[in-house]
């Protein structure tokens, strides 16, 4: 009797979980798979088999993903880069998220300033300091704050764990604004360690009247 009751409980649980099972990422699915396996074992063992364990819920929480979703693919890391630097007038870039995208030895090479003699080559920390300084400067001058950068076109070359992305962007003060106040192209060198992608190097240039973005680097 107890065995039959246990099996009935399992079946009832499966039915009630059917709706949640439509969500492939729902942790309930792991539980369902465990229970299905148990039910099969119990059915195969028959009346003389071992007492099945009535386990209506997963015993443990599923392990958290080792790799943050931001770094799980080329698409994800490029999307995360733009999302992390973008911010509203009262906030700042998401520094923690931004830093997590870069290899510890990564380099960042912004366009050379017209008054500079040489290129500035930054690491991720200096890149962060540069953005902070830029925001502070605008605040002090009572200029408009907020910064949204989005990718509008992309070229990509990938071979195994090495990928280079030519990513055309536009920059607006707030997300729903047009036209952009700046555009340019990032070249993003990415490497994968087999588990996640990393930004190895980020170099870019901005559009200027004498240097328009060519049609092949713009959306069709």
């Amino acid at each position: 009797m107890t065995r039959i009751a246990a099996r009935l409980a399992v079946v009832a649980f499966l039915v009630s979980a059917a709706a949640r099972a439509q969500q492939p990422t729902d942790p309930i699915n792991i539980g369902i798979r465990m229970i299905e396996a148990l039910a099969k074992t119990a059915a195969a063992a028959g009346p003389s088999g071992p007492e099945p364990t009535p386990t209506p819920l997963p015993a443990r929480e599923p392990k958290p993903l080792e790799v943050q979703p931001d770094a799980s693919s080329v698409d994800a890391i490029v999307t995360a880069l733009y999302a992390a630097v973008s911010h509203g007038p009262d906030s700042e870039p998401n520094w923690k998220r931004l830093r997590a995208l870069f290899l510890p030895d990564a380099i960042v090479v912004p366009p050379k300033r017209p008054d500079a003699d040489e290129l500035a080559v930054l690491d991720a920390a200096a890149f962060e300091a540069r953005i902070r300084k830029y925001i502070e400067g605008r605040k002090e001058r009572h200029e408009r704050l907020g910064f949204t950068e989005r990718e509008i076109a992309r070229r990509e070359n990938r071979y195994g764990p090495v990928c280079q992305v030519f990513s055309t962007y536009e920059t607006v003060w707030s997300p729903h604004e047009t036209p952009p106040f700046a555009r340019g192209v990032h070249t993003i060198q990415l490497v994968s360690d087999g588990r996640r992608w990393w930004i190895a190097s980020l170099v870019w240039d901005v559009e200027r009247p004498a240097q328009p973005i060519p049609p092949e680097l713009l959306p069709r």
């Binding site: 380099i107 090479v109 050379k112 040489e118 290129l119 080559v121 070359n157 071979y159 195994g160 764990p161 090495v162 990928c163 280079q164 070249t187 060198q189 490497v191 190895a200 190097s201 170099v203």
Partner: peptide
């Protein structure tokens, strides 16, 4: 080889080479 190049206004430089 994935090779990133940057020009400082005077000449080209190699910024990074990653390969497989």
């Amino acid at each position: 080889n994935s090779i990133q190049l940057v020009n400082d206004g005077h000449r080209w430089w190699v910024a990074s080479v990653a390969w497989d």
